[in-house]
């Protein structure tokens, strides 16, 4: 059903590959940001790989996901190509969004990835909307809305889940509880111990699972998916996880100590899954090392590709505001097309 799932050995290896790819991609993105090559904000997914990949292991290629500001992992989990992702982070013409989205808005609607989102809590309404299209046209798909623990406090999240629940839409809401919203611990943001208890307000299933364990994530989301697809409405899955890096790159992290980070790293989602596969005889240590080396080479190639890719032409700034360019914008666009810059004079 899925393009990879945890039922088959091939699928498990693919899941491992995607998790390792996310980590390699984000480590590289962090380094390139530190070097000043990647502008803007980057929010890394390192430590949370099992949530994105476990979720997507339960999905078909044409199912939708609506992501968050911490979206690189969701992209890779959904099958996007690190090469064009890196080009997008670099703001290059070959990026998924022609360089106009960047890390915070990276998207590939054709691949069912409805966008990273710079607005905390904006993913769930998008997922409810995609689920509405699916339901309206009787399509055999579902939509997943990712959100952080911090986003659970947003009004639009409540509205979106309430609509999906009231209309039995084929949606799943995956809360990535990494225990912080920026520097504020989850217990200072919510009066609940388990954020999945919010499900009671909508009379839908809600469960809290170990988000460091890809199998637990995939199982929970598969069940939620079956329920959604059967027309029984949405589920809230809260995955307890942890981000190893700062909120964004450059975060000095005064709100936590190394001991806490190390405690979570003992249950690293990649290492634990790798060890399980080795125990089952599905993978050798050498094969894993080889896999990791291959992926790192791919990511290096992606960086090189992004570095060499052309910047967007100046007129690209004026494209894609509407299906057709209105006269208000055309004047600037045509000047940019001919002499590569803004027209002189007034407007």
């Amino acid at each position: 059903m899925a393009d990879f799932d945890l039922e088959s050995q091939d699928g498990r290896l693919e899941a491992l590959r995607r998790m390792v790819t996310i980590r390699a991609f984000d480590e590289e993105a962090g380094d390139r940001f530190a070097d000043g090559e990647i502008p803007g904000f980057v929010h890394l997914y390192i430590g949370e790989e099992a949530v994105g990949v476990g979720t997507c292991a339960a999905l078909k290629p044409d199912d939708y996901i609506a992501s968050t500001h911490r979206g690189h992992g969701h992209c890779i989990a959904k099958g996007l190509d690190p090469k064009y992702m890196m080009a997008e982070l670099y703001g290059k013409a070959d990026g998924y969004c022609n360089g106009k989205g960047g890390s915070m808005h990276i998207a590939d609607v054709d691949a069912g990835m409805l966008g990273a989102n710079g607005i905390v809590g904006a993913g769930p309404p998008m997922a409810t909307g995609a689920a509405l299209s699916i339901d309206y046209q009787d399509r055999d798909q579902i939509a997943v809305g990712f959100l952080g623990d911090g986003a659970v406090a947003q009004g639009q999240v409540h509205e979106a889940i309430n609509i999906a629940a009231t209309w039995d839409l084929p949606a799943v809401f995956v809360i990535e509880n990494n225990h912080y919203g920026e520097g504020t611990p989850v217990e200072n943001q919510h009066n609940l111990d388990n954020l999945s208890d919010t499900a009671q307000a909508y009379d839908i299933p809600g469960l809290t699972i170990d988000g460091m364990d890809i199998t637990a994530v995939a199982e929970a989301v598969s069940e939620a998916r079956d329920r959604a697809r059967a027309g029984d409405g949405p589920t809230i899955v809260e995955a307890e996880t942890y981000r190893y890096r700062g909120h964004y790159e450059g975060d000095e992290e005064p709100y936590r100590d190394d001991a806490e980070i190390e405690r979570w790293q003992e249950r690293d989602p990649i290492e634990s899954f790798r060890d399980r596969l080795i125990d089952r005889g599905e993978l050798t240590v050498e094969e894993f090392d080889e896999l990791q080396a291959d992926i790192e080479a791919d990511i290096d190639a992606a960086v090189e590709y992004a570095q060499d890719a052309p910047a967007p032409d100046a007129h690209e700034a004026y494209e894609d505001m509407f299906a057709e360019m209105p006269p208000e914008i055309e004047r600037f666009a045509s000047a940019a097309r001919t002499d590569g810059g803004r027209p002189g004079g007034d407007r």
Partner: peptide, 14 residues
């Protein structure tokens, strides 16, 4: 906010 967002998501998906 909920239905404006849902309409947006729906419009993006067909």
């Amino acid at each position: 906010a909920g239905f404006m967002g849902a309409a947006t998501g729906a419009a993006a998906t067909g």
